[in-house]
């Protein structure tokens, strides 16, 4: 069973995404800010990280910077999950987000569960 870490400060969203993912046979853990997200990622070595952008303490971009600099976590795929549409290149074939000058896959909030699941599947190579 693939393990997914959700890092998002919106507890309602986390709750709903957790339900959805569990129903689709994923093991889910979560945390509510970038700092804890970074620590949990090292601790748990998930197969995928779903990362919000705007969070207290440490925002998603910062957390990913740390994750990519760390040998343990640098190969874990990251899927950004954001309400900030302005980050996304409009009309782009794939939803992507530009973080620290690098493009990462992204899903916009409000989310469509099917779109989220499809993105997860493709990132996990399923």
């Amino acid at each position: 069973m693939k393990k997914i870490l959700i890092v998002d400060d919106d507890v309602d969203i986390v709750d709903l995404v957790e339900n959805r993912l569990k129903k689709n046979n994923y093991e889910v853990t979560f945390t509510n800010d970038g700092d804890n997200g970074y620590r949990k990622a090292i601790e748990q070595k998930p197969d995928l990280i779903i990362m919000d952008v705007m969070m207290p303490n440490m925002h998603g971009g910062e957390a990913v910077k740390l994750l990519k600099a760390n040998d343990i976590t640098k190969n874990i795929p990251v899927l950004f999950f954001t309400a900030m549409n302005s980050y996304l290149p409009k009309g782009a074939e794939l939803d992507q987000i530009n973080v620290n000058g690098q493009l990462y896959p992204a899903i916009t909030k409000p989310f469509e569960p099917n779109k989220l699941l499809a993105a997860i599947k493709s990132l996990l190579g399923e």
Binding site: D10, K109, P110
Partner: peptide, 17 residues
């Protein structure tokens, strides 16, 4: 409009589930 969407999608997804 953007602020409306997020809570609306939470309601929608909850009911869907």
């Amino acid at each position: 409009s953007h602020e409306f969407r997020l809570p609306l999608s939470i309601i929608q997804e909850s009911i869907r589930q």
